[in-house]
Simulated assay, not measured.
Amino acid sequence: MSDKLARYRSKRDANRTPEPVPDVPASTPGGDAFVIQEHHARSLHWDLRLERDGVLVSWAVPKGLPADPATNHLAVHTEDHPMEYLTFHGEIPSGEYGGGTMTVWDTGTYETEKWSEREVKIVLHGRRASGRFVLFRTRGDNWMIHRMGPAVRDPLPSVAPMLPVERARPPKDAAAYAFEFAWGGRRLLVPVEGGRTEAAGEHPWLRELAESFGSRTAVLDGELATLGGAELLVLSDLLYDDGRSLVEEPYTVRRAALEALDLTGPHWQTAPSWPGDPGPVRQAAREQGLPGMLAKRLDSPYEPGPSEAWLFIPS
C-alpha cells in the first residue's frame, strides 16, 4: 500500500512547524468529515479538505467556494493531509511551506455522489458551507469547483457612485440629515470578493484592506483624499455586505453596517458622521481647509448619479 502522507511529510519538518506530522494515515478510513481553512499565506486562499481513506484529500481554492453557479472558481489539488488537520489552526512559521496564519473557516460532514480521478461530486453540510458542489479536473493539478443549485447570495450591485447636488446653505430640516466632511478627493467604489479587489490594480495598498475581509464579500464607497501628504481612502458608505445588497436600504442602515466593520488601517479609515447639527461640521471643515460638508438624508437609498438626497455645502 502506498504511503498517502509521504508527500505531505516531505514538505514539513516537525521540529520547525506546529502542524501535525504523523507517521501513518488514520487507521479508521471511511469517514465523512470535511474542513475548510482560511489560509493567510503568501496569498490568501481557502483549503478544502475531504476525509477519504484515512486522509484529507485537499484543494487550495484562491477565491473560496463559489456562491453563484454562474461562476466557477479555481481549485488547485494539493497533497493529502493527515486527519489531525480537521482541527488544526495556528501560525505556520515564515519560510516554511505554507507559512502564514491558518484558521478553521468551517467544518462538518459531506456526502459523496461521485468520486473519480477527474470529477468529485459532493454535498457539504456545514455551518457556513452547504450545498452541492462538483470539482472537475482541467489540467494537471488545476481543477475547478462549481456550485450546483441556486445562488446563495444577492448579486453584486453594478452601480455608479451616488453624487451630491450643490447648495449654498444647509437644509432647513437638519434633523433629517447626517453631516460629513467633503474631503476634496476622488470617489472610488471598492468591490471586495474572495479577499481581493480589482481596485488594487491602481492602488496596490488596497490588497491589505481586501484581505482583511477574508471570505466576506462587500462593496465599499469611499473618497481618495490626500491627508498629511499621504493618500488615504476615506470610507463613507456600504452598498453590499456578506451576500446582501444594501442599495435599497436607508442611509442609517448602510451607515450602521459600515461602522460595524470597524475599518481602520494604514491607508484607510471610516469617515466620521454627525446627525442633525450642521453648524459645527461646517465650521470644522473651514478650519481644516476642506472644501465643505455633505448632508445625507437619513432615509435615502443609494441612488447612482446626482441625487437631491445628498447635498454638498461649500465651506
Rank of each mutant, 00 (worst) to 15 (best):
N15D: 15
E208I: 12
M144V: 09
P22D: 03
E308G: 09
V55H: 07
E211Q: 15
P301R: 12
R12G: 03
P93M: 00
L163E: 15
R196C: 02
V24S: 13
V55D: 00
R167W: 11
H125S: 08
R297L: 01
S215G: 14
P170S: 06
E287R: 14
V134A: 10
A257G: 08
S307W: 02
A295W: 03
A257C: 08
L5S: 08
L294Y: 04
E111K: 12
L65C: 01
E208C: 09
G64F: 01
V123D: 08
P157S: 14
H73N: 14
S245W: 07
G243P: 01
Y251E: 15
K296G: 03
P20M: 00
S43D: 11
E19S: 11
G185M: 00
S236D: 15
F312Y: 04
V55M: 00
V24E: 14
G185C: 01
T226N: 13
V159Q: 01
G195L: 05
T264R: 13
D277H: 10
T17A: 04
D154A: 07
D173V: 05
R16L: 15
S94R: 15
V55A: 01
S236N: 15
P155A: 08
I36V: 09
G305D: 02
W274C: 12
V104E: 03
W105F: 13
H81K: 00
V152K: 12
L48M: 00
D277Q: 13
G276W: 10
A210S: 10
Q288D: 11
A230C: 08
D154L: 05
D262W: 05
R132Q: 07
G95A: 02
E223F: 08
A67Q: 11
D237N: 06
T71I: 15
L238P: 11
R7V: 14
R137P: 08
L206N: 06
Y97P: 10
S273F: 07
L48Q: 03
R207Q: 12
R167D: 15
A70H: 04
A309V: 12
Y110A: 01
G292C: 09
E248Y: 05
P171K: 06
E180F: 05
R12A: 06
R167M: 10
T226C: 14
H89K: 10
A160Y: 09
W205V: 14
